[in-house]
Design a protein around this nucleic acid. Structure first.
Lengths: 234, 234
DNA sequence: GGGCGTCGGTAAGCGCGCTCACAGACAGGC
DNA sequence: GCCTGTCTGTGAGCGCGCTTACCGACGCCC
């Protein structure tokens, strides 16, 4: 089922299908959940949630990309995650946490499904399999975050950019023209690698000179993963 | 029950008592778990686990402190957590993750209880209440880690040190002599705040000049939380 | 008491990467 | 076409904090 088809599909179960943590749930259970998760749309650039509004809901991303980020007192931003379709986000509410000062912004026009905290408690945590999946997801995030923290502390900007590019491009199959594409601007990449736009531009230029990536407007093609891994170190 | 008494107590349930995530488990259940968790001791300075040995066990810390840290290629260390008695650690194995390049080192002589992965699966994850507690713990850690990442990126060294001191001292009741004590050397503090020992010494000296802390060998007393919070920012 | 290891204090030097300040390139709208 | 906004490219300057290199102070063990 391609994405456009899914969007047009009036099927009530649509919110649950093709979402990783629900993969082994049967139709009857999904039906109950789907009723509790109405669909909602956001325009590119709008905020899905922010620290001010105390949203206590879980989101399931069906279409588009979401950027989760934090803001420093002086206005700089650090992107902590980019959410792809088929993933839940805003999971902190599941485990009784605040959304801890994070913003969620639609990178494109997006479609999400929304579940209230109460429904999360009864429908998700009540199910052993889903609860286990959620723990697993949290564990993975924890490992990734710890890695990012040590990267931020130990690694140089070129190393962090190489790391970020490799992470973003993995899984993406190489389309025509050889090389996996990362569809981000230098500014967006800078916010992920915790650096400035200017140095990002400079370092990406050096990478391109070495032939490990090739640059396009809002689009970076990873040509030589091996050498990028060498730059990343460890 | 004071700690020394607990250590000497031959009670089989000893491993479970006074541990936060087990607080509402009844005696019969605890008994089953306690059999699966033999007691083990480590000398000050020894490693409880390291990335090389693939330990697949969960630890329950009963006495002493444990430092969880990562090491950079060039040998610098970043402390990701200091574990206090009554807390589980090595939890990544619960959620099917590796211990992801972390070391665990005994800061003093320590006593731990050990559970195998298999026992964790059946005894802990099988119990709804404990599973929920574990998710909660993971969520808390996730929030704290995200905060630490953005601190590492956005804040200056004095701000990070103030943050670290406040975090370490909170909960500690002020003993004689006014001021909550943080029992760490400058070097240990530096590894927590992701900075160097020398700048830590310098900044702590400035804090002491301002009168917000007072210094002793391997011991820092927080005198004025308010002003420390002002330095921390946000 | 003497010796030694850890801990704390201090200073000079310098390099990475941020800030600030432009300027050209590309895309889309009208 | 032209205008506008975003994106990319480039350079000068400089400051925070790391590095390197000591040395004195304290505490513990013999």
């Amino acid at each position: 089922m391609d994405i456009q088809h899914a969007v047009d599909n009036p099927n009530r179960l649509w919110c649950m299908t093709e979402v990783d943590i629900f993969r082994d749930i049967d139709a009857a259970e999904m039906d109950a959940m789907a009723q509790a998760a109405p669909r909602k749309e956001f325009k590119r650039g709008s905020l899905v949630y922010s620290p001010h509004q105390r949203v206590e809901t879980l989101f399931i991303l069906k279409q588009g990309r979401i950027r989760i980020f934090r803001v420093s007192p002086d206005g700089r931003t650090l992107t902590t995650a980019i959410v792809e379709p088929g993933t839940i986000f805003g999971e902190m509410v599941i485990v009784g946490q605040q959304m801890h000062d994070s913003f969620a912004e639609a990178m494109e026009d997006v479609v999400v499904c929304v579940m209230t905290k109460a429904d999360v408690q009864t429908l998700l945590l009540g199910d052993q399999r889903i609860a286990a999946r959620i723990s697993e997801t949290l564990g993975r995030r924890l490992g990734a975050l710890e890695q990012r923290l040590s990267d931020a502390v130990f690694k140089s900007v070129p190393q962090r950019l190489a790391t970020t590019l490799l992470t973003l491009s993995e899984g993406q199959p190489a389309p025509l023209g050889r090389g996996q594409h990362v569809n981000l601007t230098h500014e967006q990449l800078a916010a992920l690698a915790a650096t400035s736009r200017e140095t990002t531009t400079k370092v990406l230029g050096e990478f391109a000179d070495l032939g490990v990536i090739s640059l396009g407007r809002g689009r970076i093609a990873v040509i030589d993963r091996q050498r990028l891994e060498a730059i990343r170190g460890d």
